[in-house]
């Protein structure tokens, strides 16, 4: 299926102070095959995360469509699991409890024992068989992110969305987790979009790399096929005769847009500075903005965040619950 995921003319616009619509993302087109891993790379502020949050259904689409497995998306759903830079674990739950949140949702008719086995399976898959009863505060950042990955995969999503999932980790942990995800994707064949700044990470993990032009009016500038077989071995990839040419192609693209970031040149659509975090005039925080606020906090701050969440729009809570990022009980 060449078009398992179709992102068609995706546009995100925010009003500026005088009410004009500023197109942060303007006409983003991308088709993804079933089971394919596609990285999206570009300079900070180019709109990568904006695209991901629109695909996730966390950010309203101004125009265009996202079609996953033949269905046009209309909001967040467990068919598109998200792993953010911060794992956003619920601090009052163990790793087992955090993953169980999603399992309950997608296996509503399973028995208690079946659910337990499913949670244990996914935690084992990320190498946490011995840490199922640990609380977030008892785990390192890398371990917490493993729980976040297990929680996302346990949703049995049609599409996995990774938003700089290793951005806060040290190099060694980052490589470990890359291999954890690669192992899972090799086994589960989940269609995946990865947002990253890291050229080597993109080359190692992806089947294709989508390079974005600078925003505003960001779009796909170039797409690079990565011809390495799967499963991949890091050493074999590094020693592949094409590795440095492919890497060079990415760096050339990024340098081109970095050099011209503040100078409008070329066809007039690129070269201006932009910011993912443009949110218009601040009237009405969008769902994505609220999610960003919540997700942008260090794990240790989540307890405090859980108190503030009651002040947010009920939609935020609902979305967080759908993605297993929050637990909602009666009376809350």
């Amino acid at each position: 299926m060449d078009r398992y995921v179709e992102i068609v003319n995706l546009v995100k616009a925010y009003p500026n102070p005088v009410g004009e619509a500023i197109r942060v993302v303007d006409g983003f087109n991308l088709n993804i095959r079933k089971g394919e891993v596609v990285s999206v790379i570009g300079h900070s502020g180019c709109g990568k995360s904006t695209v991901l949050t629109m695909v996730a259904g966390l950010n309203a689409i101004t125009s265009g469509d996202v079609v996953v497995a033949g269905s046009v998306i209309s909001g967040a759903g467990p068919d598109r699991a998200v792993v953010f830079q911060s794992p956003c674990l619920l601090p009052w739950l163990t790793s087992f409890g955090n993953v169980m949140l999603g399992v309950k949702r997608v296996y509503p008719h399973a028995t208690r024992q079946e659910r337990k086995e499913i949670v244990e399976y996914y935690l084992s898959l990320v190498g946490l068989a011995d840490a199922m009863n640990k609380y977030p505060r008892e785990m390192s950042g890398g371990m917490q992110q493993r729980v976040g990955i297990a929680r996302a995969i346990a949703l049995k999503p049609k599409m996995l969305l990774l938003d700089e999932p290793f951005g806060r980790l040290d190099s060694l942990t980052r490589m470990d987790l890359q291999d954890v995800i690669m192992g899972i994707l090799n086994r589960e064949k989940i269609t995946t979009m990865v947002i990253t700044h890291d050229v080597d990470e993109a080359v190692y993990m992806s089947d294709r790399i989508c390079m974005m032009t600078n925003g505003p009016r960001a779009r796909v500038g170039q797409v690079l096929d990565i011809p390495f077989d799967r499963p991949r071995d890091r050493r074999a990839v590094l020693e592949h005769e094409l590795y440095y040419d492919l890497r060079g192609c990415l760096i050339d693209f990024l340098e081109k847009f970095d050099k011209h970031k503040h100078v409008g040149k070329g066809d007039g659509r690129e070269g201006m500075s932009g910011d993912d975090d443009v949110r218009g005039d601040g009237k009405g925080v969008e769902l994505a903005g609220a999610m960003d606020m919540m997700l942008g906090l260090p794990a240790d701050d989540n307890a405090e965040m859980s108190l503030k969440i009651s002040d947010m729009a009920t939609g935020v809570v609902g979305t967080a619950e759908v993605l297993s990022l929050a637990e909602v009980s009666d009376g809350v």
Binding site: G27, N29, L30, R208, T213, R219, V220, G221, Q222, V223, L224, D225, I226, P227, L242, D245, L246, G248, C249, D267, R269
Partner: peptide
């Protein structure tokens, strides 16, 4: 040769690069 070796892995959407333009 070198230019050609990498070009076969490159794709352009409409409006990007010389082919896309």
């Amino acid at each position: 040769e070198r230019f050609g070796k990498i070009s076969k892995y490159v794709n352009f959407p409409i409006g990007s690069g010389l082919p896309g333009m």
